[in-house]
Design a protein around this nucleic acid. Sequence first.
DNA 1: TATATTATATTCTGCGAGAGAACAAAATCC
DNA 2: GGATTTTGTTCTCTCGCAGAATATAATATA
Lengths: 407, 407
Amino acid sequence: MPQPSESHAATIDQTSDQQRKGTAAGRLLTLLHRRGRMTRAQLTTESGLARSAVGTALAELTDLGLIQTGQAARPSDTPMTRGRPSPEVFLRPDGPVVIAVQLWRGRFQAAVIGLGHVLERVHTPVRLDGPGPQEALDQVADLVIRLREQAGRACVGIAVATPGFVRDGRLLSSLHLAWTEVPLASLLARRIPDAPPILVGRSSGLAALAEFHYGAGAGAATLLGLNCEHLGIGAGLITGGGPAADAGHPLEAGHMIVDPSGRACPCGATGCLELYADGRGLLRAAGLAEQDALDGQDRVRALLAACAHGDPDATRAVRTTATHLATGISTLINILSPERIVLTGFLADLYRASADHIDREVTRTSIVARTGRTRIVTGTLAHPVLHGAAELAAGPLLGDPALARRL
Amino acid sequence: MPQPSESHAATIDQTSDQQRKGTAAGRLLTLLHRRGRMTRAQLTTESGLARSAVGTALAELTDLGLIQTGQAARPSDTPMTRGRPSPEVFLRPDGPVVIAVQLWRGRFQAAVIGLGHVLERVHTPVRLDGPGPQEALDQVADLVIRLREQAGRACVGIAVATPGFVRDGRLLSSLHLAWTEVPLASLLARRIPDAPPILVGRSSGLAALAEFHYGAGAGAATLLGLNCEHLGIGAGLITGGGPAADAGHPLEAGHMIVDPSGRACPCGATGCLELYADGRGLLRAAGLAEQDALDGQDRVRALLAACAHGDPDATRAVRTTATHLATGISTLINILSPERIVLTGFLADLYRASADHIDREVTRTSIVARTGRTRIVTGTLAHPVLHGAAELAAGPLLGDPALARRL
DNA sequence: TATATTATATTCTGCGAGAGAACAAAATCC
DNA sequence: GGATTTTGTTCTCTCGCAGAATATAATATA
């Protein structure tokens, strides 16, 4: 009998996580950033590097002022072990920060986030004055500058999360904000004196990234995040330990056409998913109109509460909306087959209200789902989009810690 | 004014193509395989390697019996240049081959393909005797063994292209073949004495790969292939110079749900795209039933011909089918926004019959398409699936030419 | 308390892959 | 025939890390 031949399809990189990219120092910094304080010995095994390499890389990181070494964390950690104790290594609490910004229609929010995804400070959402990007970015820049001063620590990056289709720091189109062709990164850079690198990402993509690293995505090899902040639905795809070719994938999941003979969508198509499965969709299913988005969010909460208390009309509306979501999820699974789907925002609420129904519908209507690999879960982070933006902003530093030298 | 800050989203690897992976020898072998004979000087610039590295790598490849060096190709090539002439390097015509197999419902086909994507020999499609995978694979193995003997050259890999959802050499589900959970690679390995590595891929993914490298995809950074061989529709996504996380993406584009209140699909859902937009869909739109697939293909050809001659009924059917295809394409663009979409098989015929209508519909219904990046084209290869399978089978050797040493 | 044991940190050597400079070779141009 | 140009070859250097050898700091045991 012949030896069992290799039987893998295409390129399967079994490299766990994003380990393989970046320098040794970058990998260790990333480990500390993602997983928190560890002993040197743990870092050695987790990184897969040789002890010698860990030694030099940690020396470099210490030199850069990014990490520090504490006492051997023995007594509390593992009370009875022998051998030379391994000192714990951790990120310096006065290390660099990033500033994360999230845009919605008519509002925005910003946060200062340190390495180690430590939320230092979240600013409460601010109402945008004008409808156009210029006025909005004036306000954003003001807040960013203020937060940066208040932080009193080096700011190594700024990231802006926005709904819509983004490429190379430009917002190409966002129905949601009603902006098109806005070079967000450069407009913001112009307003911020001596700005660090400014990166721009899609809100939903960043939410998926944050849930992948720090939330409900732990351990998944591929993850699809579906996010809805009342209006519109977006997605984010994670493969190979990071965003999947994010530069090119708008993942406008809300504009999947699920009913070509259905309602007209402002995007030009008819029957887009988000007309049926976002917050407005639920209100519409319940026969309610809405005045504005914030008003709508209250009504949605009320509807979900009524459903939880068994109100039949509310339950019917939730079920209808959930069915539409299931249809969208089935199509997405048939195309992408992620190991896990993480629902955030309104979609998480909707799923919690109707999980069995959605699971059943997805299983029934997706042949790929029936291979049993995809698990649907709800997100666990309070601010997935902000944390995702922080991750984006911290990316360059994690890849090459030497950037910290230029403060 | 502050210096213009970097403004790129996420991880943008500007590394052109797949250049960066593999050893120096692998990169050069890949270049020769993809682009054909070149001078050493060209190889140096194209690969980005230093002259010294090219020298040693080419020596290694010559040593392995994979390439050979001809006379300085001066007189014919660039008649009047000065300087030392650069000899041309090319793949040895007696170098290793791969065997590519394509499965359809009830039929299969195989080919011997040399490095440099030279089709040495295509076997005409064979009818499968039994309905089950065991009998089918007996037949496939017989043909592969025969082709391998006839080739008289080292066979470094076998690849099987199949419709359906594939992972790790296993066919997880294929409505099309009506097979589930078939470990194709190992079943085949068991039947072929002393088998080289056997890889399994999705037909549509491989077609996309082949069109990307050798067909209508030249130069595209991201490419989505859509393929239909009369029954069913599949897709393949190329990013970063190769299949995008192919292990995980079934890209069952035919099972996108485009009409939840529509026809029932054997997959369990209702209103799947392929019910409306594959060959059968066209026949149905024309009010025709079909006996079997081969019969149906003739009728499709007749319909398309009638449409070309202006027959109103045929034109109407084609237009209806094309509209459905456009709906599917819009959703795919909204999700993936590939730089290029390459249609192959029946979809290429359908597009040729109705290109303006499809383009117009896609522009109208996809907000992402209106950013103007995606171009829709038809494939140019006669055997995209076979060539894609050959590419898959050659992959390991291209990555590490030293594998040739084990013959 | 002294010694063995264990686990870890540090130092040193080596290696592999490729960059880049220096040099050699083979053509054309004048 | 010599200058010029382009390319191939050889040599040295560096980077980044692996792995072995050695040093260190704790616990376990006598």
